[in-house]
Design a protein around this nucleic acid. Structure first.
Length: 767
DNA sequence: CAGTGAGCGAGCTTCCGCTTGACTT
């Protein structure tokens, strides 16, 4: 018998809290929600006023039985789930499942994990707030209705196993619409003028000033004319402005900003960031990593202050509390921060160390003084043109928080060069050293990265800290979008240079459209998006979540009945579902591209059973049509007749090697050469299946065979011991097997291998 | 790891938000 049982959501939190409480307390965790709507059917009885059917999912059975056992032998039960809508629902489900009397159940919330805060919580128990619980039920049921009524429409009208939802469908929409902006973007170019001035005509002891003209010139001709003007011009400093300014630190991390910075500074994917943060949290090194709050506890503020003063001095400390600005924030947790701000570095693997350091810097910087800067701008006028040149520079007078941390931006920064401006005076004459007119192209809006998509979703109030990473995974798993690279294309950029009275012309090549790990919409994503836009515009509207959230808030304060709210939503929504099922055609994304230049047969593209496909000819003519799959980066929406016809040139025979044919093609994993039934991948960016020579192909085949030979540690015919990425492993047929820990691979006999394989097969079956 | 594109038709797929393991080519 335990006197007191406290139930929290997270086991790591349970562990810490238990330390603060005496022997009369036991703290256990529910591991999040313990019940959910039944997975079979809809899980909601719509006729009976949206009565939900809750079930304890299989994977929660063990936790629940342990909770029941603990509850049965406890004196007082305190439910300390998080202080937000979901936490309140967890408290209610716990009370239901553990057969607790709601009027007697003690509901408490911790605002920070300190002895005083916990004592204060225990002194102020309240009851479960049913209005808040009902707001959660409305949220949950609405999401189920949207997801489970629209997805089956997609199975019928587009393709099986697809999905739609309040969050994921908007995420896809953002990516598709951005892609279309990029597709329709018209690149233009103009000439930018950059000058290097001398303070002295002679090349003696002087200063250089870099400045840019306020005007850009549309074409080469205009740029050249301006340079000619510059050659005869007198340049004079017309004005100097020195402005003091301050820069302030960014607020401490939330889930979303951590994901963005970890991507920008460390190159982590959203899922990777969360996995590493989870490890740090479990080790007690940082506070909870799924939060929308920028709030820091009093303890954290005090400790940060102490750390800053002892490390950098009093001058660098400025205690601040940041207001959380994001839409729909529920602030059940603190910002993400080091548990002990005085600990600068930690033990752990490289990624853990790097992420911890980032969190430490961000937290500490947020509690430091503003930086003081001095921005100098000088304007340089010409006596024969109204064009003004400006040079600007920034000098940091006091570094403040910059001593430890600067936030990165998403923009590919580059050409804006901030230099130190030399001591000059108004009216001073300057002499050009050189003036260059460089062709600059406009760039389309950037594609989303995983992290910038999270940022956008957060701005729209769509999704929660616990779902950002899973949502990004879902839309990739469904094939709606993919993380891809693009090599980019070369394009010429003209440069005209004026130096010593002469204008020379040259051209440099730059790479445009190079992309690394960006989110690209896939054909099926675009088809589904268009279908949803056309038929369910309300659901994929960017404001839909915000609007229903307002109603959930009304339910939470008791101003709105949750069943009535659902009824208002469901009636017209369900009608739309039925109408769409009844009246709309299947959507295949078919486009007719034109006729074959030789045979005159129609050429079209569409979404086929196995993905996007190009087709020559028509089955109704009695002839058999020819088919070819679209390659990865081709879109049904933009493919041209030429590109479609090109697809039919593969696979092709390019010659013989050792008496057998070599055939090139493009498969699921890119361009390949097939020889004697084996596939050899071509090198990305080097080889091209349309133009590769027989000699080069033989080179690739030999290289791959050599490498495969090196991988073999032991060869028993059917069974082999190979060297893999994670160390040695076994192969039999097309099955891989792990070796037991501590096995010496090079001493294995065939019998040993058979034993390992049999053992592995057995344990797989029993699992 | 890499073909496919006729059709038959049963049975399956799916949401968002809270939490961690268990599992690894």
């Amino acid at each position: 018998m335990i006197e007191n049982l406290v139930i929290v959501e997270s086991p790591a939190k349970a562990k810490t809290i238990e330390k603060f409480l005496g022997k009369d307390f036991r703290v256990i965790s529910s591991f999040g929600h313990i019940r959910d709507l039944s997975k079979k059917n809809l899980g909601i009885d719509i006729e009976k006023n949206f009565t939900p059917y809750y079930e304890i999912p299989k994977e929660k059975a063990k936790v629940v039985s342990e909770l029941r056992k603990a509850a049965a032998s406890a004196g007082t039960i305190w439910i300390a789930s998080d202080e937000d809508r979901e936490g309140e629902a967890i408290a209610w489900h716990l009370a239901c499942v553990l057969n607790l009397d709601l009027s007697k159940t003690k509901r408490i919330v911790f605002h920070e994990i300190t002895k005083e805060a916990i004592a204060q919580a225990l002194d102020n128990p309240r009851q479960v707030d049913m209005n808040l619980v009902n707001a959660q039920q409305a949220r949950r049921i609405l999401d189920r209705l949207v997801g489970f009524e629209i997805s089956p429409v997609l199975w019928k009208k587009v393709q099986p196993a697809l999905s739609a939802g309040r969050v994921q469908s908007v995420a896809v929409r953002l990516i598709v619409e951005r892609e279309r902006e990029i597709i329709s973007f018209k690149t233009e170019s103009s000439f930018r003028i950059n000058a290097v001035f001398n303070t002295d005509r002679l090349n003696g002891k002087n200063f250089l000033i870099r400045a840019e003209a306020s005007k850009r010139f549309p074409g080469e001709k205009e740029a050249k004319e301006f340079l000619e003007l510059c050659d005869g011009a007198e340049f004079k400093i017309a004005g100097i402005s020195i402005k003091p300014g301050t820069r302030s630190p960014a607020p401490p991390f939330t889930t979303s900003t951590l994901q963005q910075e970890a991507y920008r500074k460390l190159g982590f994917s959203v899922a990777q960031t969360m996995a590493v943060a989870q490890k740090l949290y479990e080790a007690g090194k940082i506070t909870y990593m799924r939060t929308d709050s920028t709030n820091l506890s009093k303890l954290a503020l005090a400790q940060s202050r102490k750390t800053i003063i002892s490390g950098f001095g009093e001058k660098y400390s400025r205690t601040r509390q940041f207001r959380t600005r994001s839409k729909g924030a529920q602030e059940a947790h603190e910002a993400i921060r080091p548990t002990y701000p005085n600990i600068v570095t930690i033990d752990g693997n490289q990624n853990e160390k790097k992420l911890y350091e980032l969190i430490w810097k961000r937290t500490i910087a947020s509690q430091m003084s503003d930086a003081e800067v001095e921005k100098t701008t000088i304007s340089i006028e010409m006596n024969n043109s109204p064009v003004i040149f400006t040079a600007s520079g920034e000098v940091v007078k006091f570094d403040g928080f910059l001593k430890v941390y600067t936030e990165s931006t998403d923009l590919e920064n580059g050409d804006e060069e901030k230099s130190i401006i030399p001591p000059v005076t108004q009216g001073m004459l300057l002499y050009y050293d050189n003036i260059a007119a460089t062709q600059k192209y406009t760039t389309p809006p950037p594609r989303y990265t995983e992290a910038s998509l999270v940022k956008k979703l957060e701005e729209l109030g769509i999704g929660r800290p616990s779902t950002y990473a899973p949502t990004i995974s879902t839309i990739q798993n469904r094939g709606y979008v993919m993380r891809q690279d693009r090599q980019g294309e070369k394009r010429p950029a003209k440069v005209l240079t004026l130096s010593r009275g002469r204008i020379t012309s040259s051209s440099k090549t730059e790479i445009a459209g190079k992309e690394k790990s960006k989110l690209f919409p896939q054909n099926i994503g675009m088809i589904v998006n268009d279908f949803l836009n056309e038929n369910f515009s309300e659901i994929v509207d960017y404001h839909f979540t915000a609007e229903v959230e307002e109603q959930f808030d009304e339910i939470a304060v008791g101003n709105l009945k949750w069943t009535g709210m659902l009824d208002n939503f469901y009636k017209p929504f369900h009608k739309t579902v039925e109408n769409t099922l009844e009246k709309k055609d299947r959507r295949t994304g078919t486009r007719y591209l034109g006729n074959h230049p030789e045979t005159g047969e129609p050429v079209s593209v569409r979404m086929g059973r196995f993905g996007p496909v190009a087709q020559i000819g028509d089955a109704s003519d009695g002839n058999k049509p020819r088919f070819a799959s679209l390659t990865k980066n081709l879109l049904l929406e933009t493919i041209t007749l030429e590109e479609a016809l090109n697809l039919f040139r593969l696979p092709r025979t390019i010659g013989e090697y050792q008496g057998d044919e070599m055939i090139t093609g493009i498969g699921k994993f890119g361009p390949y050469i097939r020889h004697r039934g084996k596939f050899y991948s071509m090198k990305k960016g080097v080889d091209d299946p349309y133009s590769i020579t027989a000699e080069r192909s033989i080179e690739i085949i030999n290289e791959k065979n050599e490498n495969d030979k090196k991988k073999i540690i032991k060869d028993f015919g059917d069974i082999k011991v190979l060297k893999g990425r994670y160390g040695p492993y076994l192969v039999k047929g097309n099955q891989n097997y792990r070796l037991p820990k501590g096995t010496e691979a090079d001493k294995l006999t065939e019998d040993d291998c058979i034993k390992i394989i049999n053992k592995n097969n057995k344990s797989k079956k029993s699992a």
